[in-house]
Amino acid sequence: MADVPADHASPVIRPGVITLARHGEPALSRKVRLNAPEYGLWWARYEEGGLKDGQVPPPSLVELAKNADVIIASTRRRSIETARAVVGERAFATDPTFIEAPLPPPPWPTWIRMSPKRLGFFARFWWWFFDNHGGQETRKAAEARAGQAADLLIELSASGQNVLVLAHGFFNWMIADALKKRGLTKLLDQGHGYWSIKRFDRA
């Protein structure tokens, strides 16, 4: 078989960039003090709620979305409203694979009361280290889901498409960890604040 001339060789396709963005600030107030059972009810309302009014996404995130070939939100309302704020009338996909990892309340006596932010920290600690899942998704199951999400994003970006996910803080971190384990390189990490992003590509 004759050699293919160099100028007719198939071009090498560089994988696209994967961006994980956290949603904007939710409407549900954190200026309350709750015990563990009350926190469970508060978190259920948080999961159902949308964004606080009057927010504007960072211009850098809006610009990044313009250059994204694939845009995905989770099926939670706060994620969908974030995507709409960022992309305007442009179409985007929704996928339950990207919903937040659960936050069952810690098994504490009811006399312990604190803010949702602090209770959320301890709820995550008990879920992560002591498998306190309360019948919800376990850490092991969430890690498997994060791996599935990472594999999907890698597959979507393999053909050179830039992929943007508009989802949730802790589960985005879990996906980021799965991407790193699969050999991707972190380009940017803005932490865990609202509207923050993490970016990865294949080195």
Rank of each mutant, 00 (worst) to 15 (best):
P106D: 08
P58A: 12
T97D: 11
K117P: 03
A93W: 02
F92G: 05
T97F: 00
F122G: 08
P106N: 01
L119V: 05
P59K: 09
A85L: 13
F98C: 09
S115M: 12
L61E: 09
R78V: 06
I99L: 02
P105F: 02
S115D: 08
M114E: 10
M114D: 15
A65G: 11
A85D: 05
W111P: 10
K117R: 14
I71C: 00
P57Y: 00
V87L: 11
P109S: 04
R90T: 08
L119E: 09
S60G: 03
N67M: 01
S79V: 05
P116F: 11
E100G: 12
M114Q: 14
A101C: 13
A65Q: 07
P105W: 09
D95I: 10
L61I: 10
F122A: 07
P96K: 00
L64M: 11
P59I: 03
T94C: 13
S74N: 14
P106Y: 05
D95R: 12
P96Y: 10
G88R: 05
D69E: 02
R90H: 01
I71M: 10
P116S: 04
M114I: 02
P58Y: 05
V86Q: 03
E89S: 05
T75W: 07
R118D: 13
P102V: 13
R90E: 03
S79H: 01
R76C: 11
T82N: 09
V56W: 06
A65Y: 10
T82K: 06
E89A: 07
S74Y: 10
S79F: 04
S60P: 05
T110E: 12
A85H: 14
E100V: 10
P59F: 06
R78I: 05
T82I: 08
E100P: 02
V70K: 11
S115I: 09
R113L: 09
